[in-house]
Amino acid sequence: MLIQDNHFEESFLPVTSIASGTGVAVLPDVYCYTDQIVNLCLIGSPEETKEFVLIDAGMPKSAEEIKKLVTERFGEGIRPSGILLTHGHFDHVGSLADLLEEWTVPVYAHELEIPYLTGKQDYPAGDPTVDGGLVSEMSPLFPNHGIDLSTQIQPLPANGTVPVLADWKWIHTPGHTPGHVSFFRECDRMLIAGDAFVTVRQESLYNVITQHKEISGPPKYFTTDWNAAHASVKKLEALKPAMAITGHGQPMSGEEG
């Protein structure tokens, strides 16, 4: 049975990290911000323009925190040109419905992710058996239901272009979810990978809290197709990214990767 709770009011979210509430300008126009245990990105240079794009929308009940971040970086009353989603899990769209109550902007996701973002389908519940970590064991309590953004969600163009970011392309990186995508800019080889892979072992509560940096596969408890996930990582590896921001963990660059 589908539960239409766009605002995740009853979410069970007991996990945070030492990086929560902090951000870093990975590049002058790429800002990574950590909301509890998940990253979101603001793409746009505040020194050159007040226009920006938001990639992913953080944890539930973080809308005011995100709007404050936008105000601090771009100024009062500024809203994004659009919102891009790597996928629709609760920790990547948690505050999206609240933000859209004030921001009338287009939201883009892969066409295979649209059923989860129009209230037609739910994700599988978290699997506590995939790993011995405490986050995995808690994962069945995490929200897994779809949300209904029918009035503002649009599919990304089939040709790989990104409507609100002319110099970026999207790459289908399924496995963690059917319509998971990553975003890549060829000119500087900047990669925003979402949860195709992450830079912290997300199943471990200790590693999540301390943000111990290591390259890891997608969060196991929500990943449903490991063959596709492996192929997606290989696809991203072939791009030879110079810098990577993942959905969880700290950004990595150069020899770190």
Rank of each mutant, 00 (worst) to 15 (best):
Q4C: 09
F8D: 00
E9M: 12
E9K: 15
E10F: 14
S11L: 00
F12G: 00
F12K: 12
L13W: 14
P14Y: 10
T16I: 02
S17W: 03
S17M: 06
I18Y: 07
S20M: 00
T22P: 00
P28L: 09
T34Y: 03
Q36W: 03
I37H: 05
V38Q: 07
N39F: 03
C41W: 04
I43Y: 07
S45P: 00
S45E: 12
S45I: 02
P46F: 09
K50H: 12
V53Y: 02
L54C: 11
A57D: 02
A57N: 01
M59S: 11
K61P: 00
K61T: 02
S62V: 00
S62H: 15
A63P: 01
E65S: 15
K67L: 14
T71Q: 13
T71G: 01
T71I: 05
R73S: 01
E76A: 15
G77I: 04
P80C: 11
P80R: 09
P80T: 10
S81Q: 11
G82E: 04
H87R: 05
H87C: 12
H87Y: 12
F90A: 10
F90C: 05
H92A: 02
V93I: 14
G94Y: 05
L99Q: 04
L99R: 02
E102W: 06
V107R: 10
V107D: 03
A109Q: 03
A109L: 00
E111A: 13
E111L: 09
E113C: 04
E113P: 07
I114A: 06
L117I: 06
L117S: 06
K120H: 14
Y123K: 05
P124G: 09
A125L: 10
G126S: 09
T129I: 04
S136K: 01
P140Q: 10
F142V: 01
L149Y: 12
Q154M: 12
P155L: 05
G160T: 01
V164I: 12
V164E: 04
V164S: 06
V164C: 14
D167Y: 01
W168K: 06
W170A: 03
I171T: 09
T173M: 09
T173V: 13
G175Q: 03
H176N: 15
G179R: 04
V181G: 03
V181H: 05
S182Y: 08
F183K: 02
R185S: 01
E186C: 02
C187P: 00
I192L: 15
I192K: 01
A193E: 09
A196G: 09
F197S: 07
V200A: 08
V200H: 06
R201N: 14
R201E: 08
E203S: 14
S204C: 15
L205M: 15
L205P: 06
N207I: 00
N207T: 08
T210F: 12
Q211Y: 05
E214T: 11
G217E: 08
P218I: 00
P219E: 05
Y221P: 03
A228W: 07
A229M: 10
A229K: 05
H230N: 11
V233M: 14
K234Y: 07
E237R: 13
L239T: 09
K240C: 11
K240P: 06
M243T: 13
M243G: 02
A244W: 06
T246Y: 00
G249K: 05
G249N: 07
P251I: 08
P251G: 07
S253W: 15
S253R: 14
E255M: 12
